[in-house]
Write a protein that binds this DNA or RNA. Structure first.
Length: 1151
RNA sequence: GCGCGCGUAGCUCAGUUGGUUAGAGCGCUACCCUGAUAAGGUAGAGGUCCCAAGUUCGAAUCUUGGCGCGCGCACCA
């Protein structure tokens, strides 16, 4: 027998109990075991970082990541779910630095790399408990005990193998490039990391004069005006770039204002691009006259005085021999460059090759023009820590950005500052230390030649199913097309060490694919460093063996030079490479895990939020393509389908972030509403790729619509099943999965075909929904599937249960015994089957509530002869033979007619309590309905009468009394055929005599109508639709399927009945205010001065008494009764109620 | 600046290949039910489908150009 159900569910408490049940019985493991050997569904877990608290965004990803594996498992597939943790990288180091109160690399070195690494390793697990709790709480089934961890030796060795492969293939190289440099952190960042840190800031923007030299090397009064937002790069200026085919003008200040006028100092003349001259004048609020104009090519080759003489020797510029013969000064010369634009600035670009990628290409180009070894060298007066060196005394030892002000002031005193303003633009900061601006800086760095694989990556991408689809060719495709080589190395500490050892003599390098390969090298030394540390501290993790600083101690004999040693390069790698290597590194492949890797590659399904486009999605695709791309595969790799989730927004619509903590803790939501509420909100609230507004209100409001409604139906079922003795276990001896075929074996389970219409309808809807949900879920459309589920629960609650109440409350027991009531038993079987099936359908979505329902309806009833968990059952796919489409359609018509009837009543202010004599229904033609529908509807007159509280139902025989018919052209059919004549045809059809036209069409199947302005059109029967419109003066409502007319005339009898219903309603309200149980019996007495009301009550006294459970109903007073005076439709009435006793709760009898 | 996405009811969002009366939930208002009851149900009000032009017989839907929002990118010197 079923356990009693609390009417008001405490979902969090229910979920806690279910959670415990799963844990104790190992349901997750069993769900896997049960499918072992079946077709695999491969899922990759994108590793989160556990050194921060989980937030609502993680709840979303974990919900989606749980949904599909659960669904697939129920569909019969085998889906391993290996957890993973991302443990390396800057986020961890920065967190540890914060704890230590330090920031710079120097401080880390002072603290000691070894203890620092230990701290990092501990920090990684700081919030592990919270993560594990969240994972269990939200019902994310995954193997936490067997998680892959990116710092583990086996993982690191897999990454080493990958890097060695790339190195040996010539795809991993060291290059000198301008990189985005985090000076305080002393490392370059990848483009992905740089992208994370853009922020809008106001920088000083300066217009600086570069005085031109004449042919003799003397300074002239004409100056180039260059624009820059990074004054600190000016000391390292090497060139000025112009566009050769752009017009430049020479500006002289008009007399009458400004500095220098009349002071004897020759007026300054400024050279700028013609289109930018006027804007500059406006900014400076000065009048200029143009004294000369020429093309940019005229300027090319001219020498100028750089703003600072940091690197400039005294005297005239030195002529340097060119490759092609002749000579030129190597630096401080005007060059031509195509990238110069007139979008902003002056059309003259200050070139500091050390601090700009484009600037660097100018230098490289210029170097090639000069004789070997004589060209310009890179000028740089900034140290790697972002401070000026002694080469630039003014800023020596200070961070460059802090010197902007002093540099500007200096320029002004030397009359070189033409103009200054604030410039608001986006500038990158370190994504982990967001007060540190990044600078572009020349650096040796290790790169992966990903750009060489652009086409292969695009081809691979083309075969991936992206959801939403536009990611493929949009955001992700674009990113691939503009791919640049992956800046892999990090000059940091806590990361996978770059497994490259260099010969100290020759500088030649080789890559090492594993620790074993390393210690097998000839003359290996230094392995004892770790062993000693381990001896001193036995708790030291063995995995640190392959980390800094221990790994750096290991050296071996160079194969390149006799007597030389091989030493590791100092860098670690970008942690995104770690996570991207996860498809094979999670198994330690290729050093081990061959079988696992083979069966678990590629993934069928992954899902993360959109910020992973350039993160994990890219790193996986790039690594997989580079390593495995040579082989033709019939599938994309390393994943086939990827759901890209939208960003989670806070209550204010702002983006949430771990560091800003601008969100409610998930735990609070779990405690108040439960995990299933949150899951349903995520899954059913919106398509997964839209950004989700995470608000408590929205979560709360999503509960009644589905979870609570489902629970209420379930609770209704259990309450009455217990009362009526519906005990499936006593009717079914050898239960199996409790699906339709299984239940059909039960005694008293009548074949569906023999059952009442409502039952057949319910099972039709149920099975149709199963098929629809499967269809949606197979296409990763859980949002659509959730809508189907929601509609099904609505159908059960608002139609099946409501229309079945009579059966549930009718006399007799719900069994096959002598008191058995077959119709009642049918109702129970139908609702039972429906609820069991819904529990299975909803299981992947709301696993807790589904389990609670299953547990009571199946396990509590049958014990261990049925599956002990809903998650061990097969997902219902729907049985087509049980679906009766005609019935579904016709029931929809009844619901429509009822709804329209109520609308008609409402329009005339006729409340449902007032009985009416008649309802007439005119069915629309041409809406897929037919004559059989009308007959069917007529057969359901009682149902409609009951719903609408009318005495009589009729399909209207004289529709013309109530409606007018209009013939409407079916534009979709006629449009393509008639084209431009359509408007004329439409007018002609609309204006034509509808009756005559219809007659002609039904007689001949076609009709010819004349068109305005000549010509005619032939229309066929199917080319038109008939619209019926209610005539004025009737209580009618029209919908697409029918017009419903209610008779609004009231007879005295009807009025009296209406009054009585009002009285009953008043008594019931009174019962409720008196807090009477629904089984309490009462004595009832009325007093009224209205003869009309007196008469009405007298005529229906029995009805009143039975409806209100009154043992007596009289006129007059009643001692000790609760008395209430009120107004019944304008008639005064006093009601006296006295409780007399309680009848035993039972169904049957007074329905 | 370039790219991607979005713009539909007070709020959150659907809207299938262009087709006649643009939908849902919540909220609001009114009503119903009172044996699922601190539940449940029905109806109503509420829309220049961001703007403009174009294509078309016909545009929320397609095209172009604006405007606004979000996100991403980076040769913003």
């Amino acid at each position: 027998m079923f356990e009693p159900v609390r009417g008001k569910p405490d979902f969090p408490a229910i979920e806690a109990a279910i959670s415990q049940l799963w844990r104790e019985r190992g349901i997750y493991k069993k769900s896997l075991e049960q499918r072992r050997g079946s077709k695999r569904f491969v899922f990759f877990e994108g590793p989160p970082t556990a050194n921060g608290m989980p937030h609502p965004g993680h709840c979303l990803t974990r919900t989606i990541k749980d949904l599909y594996p659960r669904y697939r498992t129920m569909r019969g597939e085998y889906c391993e779910r290996k957890a993973g943790w991302d443990t390396h990288g800057l986020p961890v180091e920065v967190e540890v630095c914060k704890e230590l109160g330090i920031h710079s690399k120097a401080e880390i070195e002072a603290f000691g790399v070894e203890p620092f690494i230990h701290r990092c390793q501990e920090s990684v697990w700081r919030y592990m408990k919270e993560w594990e709790a969240l994972t269990e709480r939200i019902g994310f089934w995954i193997d936490l005990s067997d998680a892959y961890v990116t710092y583990h030796q086996s993982y690191v060795e897999s990454v080493w193998w990958a890097l060695a492969e790339l190195f040996n293939g010539g795809l991993l190289y060291q290059g000198h490039k301008i990189v985005w440099w985090w000076a305080q952190g002393g490392t370059a960042l990848s483009s992905g990391e740089v992208g994370q840190g853009y922020r809008e800031v106001a920088d000083p923007s300066v217009y600086v004069a570069f005085p031109l030299l004449d042919d003799e090397g003397n300074q002239t009064t004409r100056s180039l005006v260059a624009w820059t937002t990074t004054p600190w790069t000016l000391p390292s200026n090497q060139f000025a770039a112009v566009k050769a085919d752009l017009e430049y003008v020479v500006l002289r200040e008009m007399p009458g204002g400004g500095d220098g006028a009349g002071s004897g100092i020759p007026a300054q003349e400024y050279i700028v691009a013609e289109p930018l001259a006027a804007p500059l004048g406006e900014k400076m609020k000065k009048q200029f006259e143009v004294v000369d104009r020429f093309m940019g090519s005229t300027l090319v080759g001219r020498s100028y005085v750089p703003p600072f003489d940091t690197f400039r020797p005294a005297g005239s510029p030195q002529a340097t021999p060119l490759q092609a013969g002749g000579s030129q000064p190597a630096a401080w010369r005007v060059v031509a460059a195509d990238f110069v634009t007139t979008d902003s600035g002056t059309g003259i670009v200050h070139i500091a090759p050390a601090f700009g990628e484009v600037d660097y290409t100018v230098l490289a180009f210029e170097q090639a023009r000069f004789a070997e070894g004589r060209g310009p060298t890179l000028l740089n007066c900034v140290a790697p820590d972002g401070t000026f060196t002694d080469t630039f005394p003014m800023g020596s030892g200070r961070f460059v950005k802090e010197c902007d002000r002093d540099i500007t002031r200096d320029l002004r005193t030397r009359n070189l500052l033409v103009h200054q303003e604030q410039y608001v633009h986006d500038y990158p900061f370190c994504w982990r230390a967001d007060n540190d601006p990044l600078i572009q800086y020349p650096r040796q760095s290790w790169f992966i030649r990903t750009s060489q694989f652009r086409e292969q990556m695009l081809a691979n991408n083309a075969r991936i199913d992206w959801l939403p689809e536009h990611i493929k060719d949009g955001r992700f495709g674009n990113f691939l097309e503009t791919n640049v080589d992956w800046a892999l190395s990090r000059e940091r500490y806590w990361g996978t060490p770059l497994p490259i050892w260099k010969c100290e003599t020759t500088g030649k390098a080789e890559a090492v694919p594993s620790y074993a390969a390393l210690v097998a090298k000839p003359g290996v030394q230094g392995t004892d460093v770790f062993e000693k540390a381990k001896a001193a501290n036995p708790k030291l993790s063995d995995d640190l063996r392959v980390h800094k600083p221990y790994i750096d101690a290991i050296t071996y004999d160079s194969p390149f030079a006799a007597g030389a040693r091989m030493r590791r390069v100092p860098e670690v790698i970008d942690c995104w490479f770690d996570s991207g290597a996860m498809p094979f590194a999670q198994w330690g492949w290729p050093h081990r895990g061959e079988q696992d890797f083979k069966t678990q590659f590629p993934a069928d399904f992954i899902s993360e939020a959109i910020d992973q486009t350039r993160g994990w999605f890219y790193s996986q695709l790039a690594i997989s393509t580079l390593l495995f791309g040579a082989e033709e595969t019939p599938y994309p790799h390393p994943f086939r389908t990827c759901i890209v989730l939208g960003h989670m927004l806070g209550e204010d619509g702002q983006k949430m972030s771990k560091s800003k903590r601008n969100y409610r803790e998930p735990a609070e939501i779990f405690d108040k509403y439960g995990a299933d509420a949150l899951r349903w909100f995520f899954l059913a609230g919106q398509p997964p790729w839209t950004s989700i507004r995470y608000s408590e209100r929205a979560i709360r409001e999503s509960v009644p619509e589905f979870l609570l409604r489902l629970w209420n139906v379930y609770s209704f079922f259990v309450i009455y099943a217990r009362i009526d003795g519906f005990d499936p276990a006593s009717l079914l001896d050898a239960p199996g999965p409790l699906d339709h075929a299984d239940l059909a074996k039960a005694r008293g389970y009548r074949p569906v075909a023999d059952r009442g219409e409502l039952d057949r309808w319910m099972l039709s809807e149920l099975n149709a929904t199963c098929a629809a949900v499967v269809h949606r879920m197979d296409r990763y459309d859980h949002f659509g599937a959730a809508a189907e589920l929601s509609a099904l629960v609505d159908a059960v609650s608002n139609w099946f249960v409501r229309r079945s109440r009579d059966r549930f409350w009718s006399a007799g027991r719900a069994d096959t015994g002598p008191e058995g009531n077959a119709a009642k038993l049918d109702a129970y079987w139908t609702l039972y089957e429906t609820l069991l099936t819904i529990a299975r359908l909803a299981a992947p979505f709301v696993p807790f509530v589904s389990e609670a329902i299953w547990h009571n309806l199946a396990v509590a009833a049958f014990g261990d002869t049925v599956p002990e968990s809903v998650h061990l059952t097969d997902f219902p796919t729907g049985s087509e033979p049980l679906v009766d489409r005609d019935l579904v359609r016709r029931m929809a018509i009844v619901r429509d007619v009822s709804s329209l009837g109520r609308a008609a009543r409402a329009a005339e202010k006729l409340k449902v309590r007032q009985p009416l004599s008649k309802v007439e229904v005119i069915l629309a033609e041409g809406h897929g309905g037919d004559a059989a529908d009308a007959a069917w509807l007529e057969a359901h007159a009682d149902l409609v009468c009951d719903e609408l509280n009318v005495k009589q139902f009729e399909i209207c025989r004289e529709p013309d009394r109530y409606i007018t018919r209009a013939v409407l052209p079916d534009l979709k059919k006629l449009g393509p055929r008639l084209g431009k004549d359509l408007p004329k045809a439409r007018d002609a059809i609309t204006k034509a005599d509808a009756a005559a036209l219809l007659a002609a069409l039904s007689r001949d199947g076609r009709a010819t109508i004349p068109l305005a302005g000549g010509g005619e059109a032939v229309i066929e029967k199917d080319d038109v639709m008939i619209r019926t419109t209610a005539k004025e003066g009737w209580a009618a409502a029209e919908g697409p399927r029918a017009v419903v007319v209610v008779a609004s005339q009231l007879t005295p009898e009807l009025v009296a009945e209406g009054l009585v219903r009002e009285v009953v309603h008043a008594v019931q309200s009174q019962r409720k205010t008196l807090d009477l149980e629904f089984t309490d019996r009462i004595e009832l007495a009325f007093e009224t001065a209205s003869p009309e009301l007196t008469s009405a009550i007298e005529h229906h006294l029995d009805y009143v008494a039975s409806e209100t459970l009154a043992v007596s109903a009289t006129f007059g007073g009643l001692d000790g009764a609760a008395v209430e005076s009120l107004d019944i439709d304008g008639h005064p009435l006093t009601i006296a109620i006295r409780r007399t006793g309680t009848a035993p709760a039972a169904t049957g009898g007074e329905a």
